[in-house]
Nucleic acid binder design. Structure first.
Length: 818
RNA sequence: GCCCGGGUGGCGGAAUCGGCAGACGCGUCGGACUCAAAAUCCGAUGGGCUUCGGCCCUUGAGGGUUCGAGUCCCUCCCCGGGCACCA
């Protein structure tokens, strides 16, 4: 065995060994203690593995190896998220066809991932672009479609003029495309939707019990955006058959509703607009519809509210007064009913609008302590009540004086009684638009027949194979590149055999990733998407680790797909990930890494120079895993030196038998095992590494040679971080085979993990004056006697009497004197 | 605007059931080894004052609770993230 640690030699030796012996393959059918350790699979870019990938995977791999050393049968698979706009755009840029580009990217990724020493089961790789995979993606679409969970409808959609495709709401960031940052515009197109809104409440409720990072749950809650309130029907004057329905979170302010506003898309506009106003209203609506979402938003941000009076009147059901109905673009058709009751006294937007058009304002909620002094004749001003705790109603007839929180309930009940409304809940989340007018995705498996309408492709005809199309560049037409491939879309109707046209949209790549983890245990099964017994054994996922940028996209969609498939009897669970932990982001020298800054860390370079183990461990040492860290090249030397010392202690040590040489060392060993065990369970890798360094420093203090009992447990503790080196040292210690099958995670004795003697801080009047050493568990008297014997303590007591003593066992004594 | 997370030495970061702030590492300085350098090893390393015994200050700012506050409460500032005309 080499005197000095040579990572290159050690790592290639063990990587070959793992591959030859199939060490990382799990017994998928026979495993007795299954643990499914999942990480978010990467998009295989042409640039190769990003250091962010390595960071994410390393943290997850450490968790998997730790679980394995604890005796679990760990399944740790990997795959490639290779469909989608990202890949397609890159292919366009390069002028390479994605069908050529992607396989070579995957090959390169595979090489890099293997070089990092991750514990992947390479026999169960998922590549979503393979027909044997997307056959089942299409099957999921059909399954949901047949269950009425998918539908095609014309809808205003976010359109990226640069990517020339529809984007889901989740893919629009600040009004821009998340991929290319082009401003998103609005289009009306026929689109396929999954009705995720039907699951909004369940997606919200289950967050109560799944074990996820709190911040991720919060993001999902905000995205689902539940609002409680009431639907209220307003009669329209002159249209006894028509009711205008609105949603409000503040039914208690009903008496303050002094006008109504419809979204420009609202279906009633044409009907109710008065003859005099028609021309103006038409023009306003036309302009509003022509403006895209971004322009509308901008106008709103600048505080300009525009609108137009329809001339029609509605009846406020509470006051029975006629109020005018307006059209304005600050009301959104997608939310609620596309119409609002405007309460300008208590809503900032309505207030702005009322001021702009000189509409009446009526205060109906005021702070409780001003109730007695309230003067209904006084000039009405906006009150903008936010919370309903200490506020009461005024100007509201029989509800005057009622606290707002109660009034919400009372007025809702009154509306229900009168048949004019009822309690209602609204969600901000929209249905999931899965259509993409692009090339690089799984074709949506339906056929449009003039006779039969929409006909699902029969299951036995799956997969609908994505054809090789030379010209895969999208255009302005609003239909995908497949719409130019006659041989693809010209088909016979499966029902009537008449001429029909295949759907030419492909599905969103988030549908691929919504279920990839269900496929891993069943990659060798071809007659089902997922093998029932294996699915039962391995799923739901025991631990999922990934980036929080996917909190509202991938993580929401995959929860939805699991629930839907569960409800349709295909899955025995409804939540796919029992435990999810986000990892942090890594920056370099305090700055975000980006190609344009030219500060991207290229893993290959560091791995070559320092070895995978050192690189892995350094990444984990940068900071708390769940928060990320700052990559500074200089710091890697610290880990490198640490590993050299570990190597030296084991490879060049005398390694005598017997217990640790001193009680202090025994204590430190047990304390270290305890600390590392607990830190690994909580993904606190940075402090686990620090603890191991501290321990090794103590083992080697004064240049002494280590005993076997001192270093063997350390080698096992290090194995999740530095698997190659651990293997080599394990072998050197005389063991046969792999440390990951031969070793047990070290156990600690809680009694031994604490010292017999402790340092106790001594305070006089709350200021630290001395430290004394005392046996663990020493009594207050004992400690006080020792403390009083200290010269520094006596000096600061200055001959005064002790009035009070505060004693914290084993930590501190505080003598209060006067 | 709303909802989160954060602000600690030259740097990355430790320490929050309130109990000796700065673990571990980087860097820097000094020493050993060397002809020399690298590597390695040993020591020092928050700031100020010092009669060399110590003393005082210090966790974004200010206030409060407490014997005791990085940690709890209030007000504010700054940085990062999410949502945003959602009724």
């Amino acid at each position: 065995m080499a005197e000095r640690y040579d990572p290159g030699a050690v790592e290639s030796k063990w990587q070959k060994h793992w591959e030859d012996t199939g060490l990382n393959r799990v017994d998928i059918d026979g495993a007795e203690n299954p643990f499914y350790n999942l990480m978010m699979y990467p998009y295989p870019s042409a640039e190769g593995l990003h250091v962010g990938n390595v960071y994410a995977f390393t943290g997850a791999d450490i968790h998997g190896r730790y679980k394995r050393l604890q005796g679990l049968d760990v399944f740790e698979p990997i795959g490639f998220d290779a469909f989608g706009i990202h890949s397609e755009n890159f292919a366009l840029e390069r002028g390479t066809h994605p069908m050529e580009l992607i396989p070579s990217n995957i090959k390169n990724f595979t090489r890099q991932l293997k070089r990092m020493g991750f514990m992947y089961d390479w026999d169960r790789v998922v590549d979503v672009t393979r027909p044997e995979y997307y056959k089942w993606t299409q099957w999921i679409f059909l399954t949901l479609y047949k269950a009425g969970m998918a539908e095609r409808r014309k809808a205003p959609v976010n359109w990226c003029p640069s990517c020339k495709t529809v984007l889901a709401n989740e893919q629009v960031i600040d009004g821009r495309c998340e991929r290319c940052s082009t401003e998103v515009t609005q289009r009306y197109l026929d689109q396929w939707f999954f009705k995720i809104t039907d699951y909004a409440q369940r997606l919200l409720d289950n967050l109560e019990w799944i074990d996820w990072s709190d911040s991720t749950k919060r993001l999902q809650r905000n995205w689902i955006g539940r609002s409680e309130g009431a639907d209220i029907d307003f009669q329209i004057a002159g249209h006894p058959d028509k009711k205008l329905r609105v949603f409000t979170t503040r039914p208690d302010t009903l008496f303050g509703a002094t006008f109504m506003v419809l979204a420009p898309e609202h279906p009633y506009i044409a009907e109710i607009t008065g003859a005099k106003q028609r021309k103006q209203v038409d023009e306003y609506v036309r302009n509003a519809l022509a403006m895209d979402l971004v322009e509308r938003k901008k106008a709103g941000e600048e505080g300009r509210k525009s609108g137009v009076d329809t001339g029609a009147k509605a009846i406020n059901p509470a006051t029975n007064q006629e109020i005018s109905i307006w059209v304005a673009d600050y009301v959104l058709m997608e939310y609620g009913h596309g119409a609002i009751m405007a309460v300008p006294a208590h809503d900032e937007r309505d207030f702005e609008f009322a001021r702009e058009y000189d509409l009446p304002i009526r205060v109906v909620v005021i702070p409780a302590d001003q109730y007695d002094a309230f003067d209904p004749q006084a000039e009405l001003q906006a009150a903008f009540t936010e919370h309903t705790e200490d506020e009461v109603l005024v100007n509201s007839e029989k509800f005057d004086g009622v606290p707002a929180a109660q009034a919400i309930k009372q007025i809702t009940a009154w509306l229900e009684q009168e048949g004019r409304g009822q309690g209602a809940v609204n969600y901000r989340i929209h249905d999931w638009c899965i259509s993409r007018q692009r090339y690089w995705g799984p074709p949506i498996p339906v056929i449009h027949c003039e006779q039969c309408g929409i006909v699902p492709v029969p299951e036995e005809d799956l997969p609908v194979v994505l054809p090789y199309v030379e010209q895969f560049r999208p255009d302005e037409s609003g239909v995908g590149p497949l719409a130019r491939a006659k041989e693809f879309y010209e088909v016979d109707c499966p029902q009537c055999a008449g001429p029909a046209k295949r759907e030419t949209d492909v599905s969103d790549t988030f549908l691929d990733s919504a279920w990839y983890f269900m496929r891993y245990p069943s990659t060798d099964v071809h007659d089902k998407p997922f093998h029932p017994a294996r699915t039962k054994k391995w799923l739901p996922v025991d631990m999922y680790i990934g980036g929080e940028e996917h909190a509202v996209l991938h993580l929401m969609y995959s929860r939805y797909i699991s629930m839907a498939l569960h409800d349709l009897g295909h899955l025995p669970f409804e939540e796919p990930y029992e435990k999810f932990r986000k990892h942090g982001l890594i920056v370099r020298e305090g700055a975000k890494m980006s190609k344009s800054r030219g500060n991207v860390v290229i893993p290959d370079e560091f791995v070559e120079q320092y070895g995978a183990d050192t690189f892995r461990t350094y990444l984990m040492f940068l900071g708390p895993y769940e928060e990320g860290g700052d990559f500074r090249e200089q710091g890697i030397a610290g880990i490198s030196r640490f590993f050299d010392r570990v190597w030296d202690a084991v490879a060049n040590g005398a390694l005598e038998a017997g217990p640790p040489e001193t009680n202090e060392l025994t204590q430190k060993l047990h304390a270290t095992i305890k600390k590392v065990t607990e830190d690994l369970a909580g993904l606190q890798y940075n402090t686990a590494i620090a603890a191991m360094m501290e321990y090794l420093n103590q083992v080697r203090a004064g240049g002494r040679a280590a005993r076997r009992s001192e270093v063997e447990p350390l080698v096992v503790l290090l194995a999740p971080f530095a698997p190659h080196m651990a293997e080599e040292l394990w072998q050197h210690l005389g063991h046969e085979g792999s440390i990951f099958s031969g070793a047990n995670w070290p156990r600690y004795d809680a009694q031994l993990a604490v010292a017999d003697e402790v340092d106790i801080a001594v305070q006089v009047n709350g200021r630290f004056r001395a430290t004394i050493r005392a046996p663990r568990g020493a009594s207050e008297d004992e400690v006080k006697q020792k403390a009083l014997a200290e010269e520094a303590v006596q000096r600061h007591m200055n001959g005064k009497k002790i009035k009070k003593t505060i004693f914290v066992p084993d930590r501190l004594i505080n003598l209060l004197v006067a």
